[in-house]
Design a protein around this nucleic acid. Structure first.
Length: 406
RNA sequence: GGCCACGUAGCCAAGUGGUAAGGCAGAGGUCUGCAAAACCUCCAUCGUGGGUUCGAUUCCCACCGUGGCCUCCA
């Protein structure tokens, strides 16, 4: 059973092509977005992901869908342990501190809060249950307090990466992850549970005191919050493999429900002067800094939505400034009187906006339609009484305020 | 090696099967005591080679180049 198809066609990372979007349940969209690991402050790359999925949500809501939006917080993680120890904080304190900073930035950017913000540490039981199910069904095996997923038991592993098992072996791998390779049956197997005694990151389990592996948390939280199968799973493109591929096999093998996710959406990387923005490199542009420098939430949102979401985006001050000018244009038009009554000539531009969004969330094209409405209002070719409300409504779908509160 | 993108003027960048928005920089001009600001004007045949077509920058193929992911990372 599934709901009626929308007019939407969206690129699915799993199939590698555009597909009609069919929600599992009519008029409802179950959407899970991989969120932050709060060991440090975020940057524009994070903001891009969350602004984009906020826009996806707003567009579904604009089309009278109910969106069940869940975004996790990874508070059980090696970096969390390391940073909390260095700062002399508990993991809970570190989480709270960075989560608040994150929320302040997202609030400033007019990102609606997800319905649920589950923390990994609150779903340990669910993870253990999934691991037990995998052990029972023979998809996992335990060794010396470790539990590994047995990738030989499913042909699906590597589907997102675009490889079969043999192909995965040829994937370049310069630096080894911190997994005890010698305990694995196969190098492709991945960790579900590991021994741990670190304060704040150690939990009782059937396999002894320990903590979960790197991928199982999302499966558990999706399961708990949204069910065995969901409509949309999103995140940065750097999570595609191995994180999301691992999630697929874990979840499908544990629950028997497939496909785990109908539509996989991956957001292109944010670059700074041609180099990927990442915490490890330290080449970060932070939202809070941009705001302090006088940039506006609308300008930043327009910038982030001004590149097709699947493409990488290269930040530069000049590019952002250009979007600030456009934000000012839109705000000016929103406050303008416009021309005389015109029999709804704004309608073709409305249609262009929705056609763009229906075409795989083509936000750059949608923005172009908005700018054309603004231009029409300013040149008095569109009637203020119809075009200005249309402008405000459609801009709102992109999360733009246009100088208005709220 | 695989996957995903990109390659448009000095720079950033939009876009379209019928000879290409905009912004920055630059040049000229209006204005001004000078300058600034503002405004006006000027400045590209779209990586290379093929193919499809009456016609391609726009579709297809190949190639070259760039970047990202494939390893904790949004």
């Amino acid at each position: 059973m599934r709901g009626a198809p929308t007019l939407l066609e969206v690129y699915n990372s799993l199939s590698g092509r555009k597909e009609e979007f069919w929600p599992l349940e009519d008029r409802v969209v179950r959407m899970y977005v991989c969120g932050i690991t709060p060991y440090d402050v975020g940057h524009l790359g994070h903001a891009r992901v969350f602004v984009f999925f906020d826009t996806v949500r707003r567009y579904f809501e604009f089309n009278a869908y109910r969106v069940r939006h869940v975004q996790n917080i990874t508070d059980v993680d090696d970096d969390m342990v390391r940073v909390s120890q260095r700062l002399g904080l508990t993991i809970a304190e570190l989480t709270e501190r960075n989560q608040q900073l994150y929320l302040q930035e997202m609030d400033a950017l007019n990102v609606q809060r997800p319905d649920l913000f589950p923390k990994a540490s609150e779903h340990i039981d669910g993870m253990i249950a999934l691991v037990q199910a995998l052990l029972r069904s023979g998809h996992a095996y335990g060794v010396d307090g470790y539990v590994f997923f047995d990738t030989a038991t499913t042909p699906r592993f590597g589907a997102l990466a675009g490889h079969d098992r043999e192909g995965l072996r040829h994937v370049r791998n310069d630096s080894m992850p911190q997994e005890p390779e010698e305990l694995k049956r196969d190098a492709l197997d991945f960790l579900l549970w590991q021994p741990s005694e670190q304060a704040g990151a150690a939990f009782d389990s059937p396999w002894g005191r320990g903590r979960p592996g790197w991928h199982i948390e999302c499966s558990a939280m999706v399961h708990a919050a949204l069910g065995d199968r969901i409509d949309i799973h999103g995140g940065g493109s750097d999570l595609r493999y191995p994180h999301h591929d691992s999630e697929i096999v874990q979840s499908e093998c544990a629950t028997g429900a497939a496909p785990y996710v109908s539509l996989w959406m991956h957001i292109g990387t944010e670059l700074l002067e041609g180099v990927k923005m990442s915490k490890s490199l330290g080449n970060l542009v932070k939202v809070s800094e941009l705001l302090v420098r006088g940039h506006t939430p609308d300008g930043i949102r327009l910038y982030l939505l001004g590149t097709p979401y699947r493409e990488q985006q290269d930040f530069s001050p000049a590019a952002l400034s250009q979007w600030e000018q456009r934000a000012a244009t839109l705000a000016r038009a929103a406050a303008a009187a416009g021309g005389p009554p015109d029999r709804l000539r704004v309608q073709p531009l409305r249609n262009e906006f929705t056609a763009a969004m229906d075409d795989g969330f083509d936000t750059p094209r949608a923005i172009a339609a908005l700018l054309r409405i603004a231009d029409g209002v300013e040149r008095q070719r569109l009637a203020g009484e119809t075009a200005v409300p249309a402008l405000l409504e459609l801009a709102g779908v992109l999360g733009l305020r246009l100088g208005r509160e709220g």
